[in-house]
Simulated scan of single mutants.
Amino acid sequence: MYERYFGLRELPFGLTPDTEYYFAHADQQEALNTLLAAVRMGEGFLKVTGEVGTGKTLLCRKLLAVLATDAQFMTAYIPNPTLDPLALIEAIATELAAPPASGQGPHALARNLAAHLIECCAQGRRVVLCLDEVQAMPVETLESLRLISNLETEKRKLIQIILFGQPELDTRLEDRAVRQLRQRIAFSCRLGPLSLADTDDYLRHRLHVAGYEGPALFGKRALRVLYRASGGIPRLANILAHKSLMVAYGEGSTVVRARHMRLACADTEAVRVRPGFLRLAFRGRR
């Protein structure tokens, strides 16, 4: 595509969460530091919320990557929230490589998972479970998480659970049926949008990781258009940056101008539903 033209090793604005491109702006780094400190202290439940596209899944994968470098931690990641309680126990057991249960019922599976967690504890391992998109998890499954978290020794929990979700997760946790779980959340983090300065640094960071070593690729006016249109949401910034680079490449330009970014905005569904930002974006010719 445009990689060779701009001197890039690879496409810099992909949508797949890639920890190599992790950008440690204030909210992300504060959340990561909080999560690392909390799991090392052995806290039970932790929660991370943020709007769609703010980087929750990337933060989750970055946390898992950091914990993977420490032999004392054993991690499990469940990306599918729409599981019933029994399926959740099976998924956790599979992620933790627990031996097969002697029976097929919920009690047999729960006993088997508990025995495996006790064995991990005896080996000095700390088990951390990360669940993504938890705002879509059924209330019954949320309650089963609390029961799993009840597993503990006299000293510490046998499993620590981190919930990642959209702001609707907070509404779900207001349900009286899961009030006991809500009371057990020791730390909460909220990921917000990037500032204009952070957006500039974010684009430069991703370009650098992708191998770019030249002068600024995005003009100042193009950057402002991108910021207004994306609202500082990293996923939208990625989409607009990628499309505007395609337009600039097609015109033979070595710099992304505001007109290139306006065309990218006009071609992006998520921006078209933000008319206020789009009107601002189309002011001026450059």
Rank of each mutant, 00 (worst) to 15 (best):
A37V: 12
D27P: 05
L11G: 11
L226R: 01
Q123K: 15
E269W: 12
E213Y: 08
L280R: 12
T82E: 13
M1H: 13
R257F: 08
L196A: 15
M137R: 00
S188L: 06
K220C: 09
A37D: 12
D267M: 12
L83T: 04
G211E: 10
R274D: 02
L226H: 02
G211R: 10
A38C: 12
P167C: 04
H107N: 14
L86S: 11
A270S: 14
R228T: 03
E168K: 05
I159F: 03
Y22A: 08
R262E: 08
D70A: 11
L207G: 03
L173G: 03
E95A: 15
K157M: 08
R184T: 09
A65F: 10
E143W: 00
A97V: 10
T141L: 02
L207Y: 03
N33K: 12
A87C: 07
A31C: 09
A114F: 07
I148T: 01
A266S: 14
P100I: 08
I239V: 15
T16D: 07
T49C: 12
P12M: 07
L236Y: 01
G14R: 07
C130I: 02
A98F: 04
P138A: 04
E51G: 11
I162C: 04
L96F: 07
V134P: 00
A258L: 09
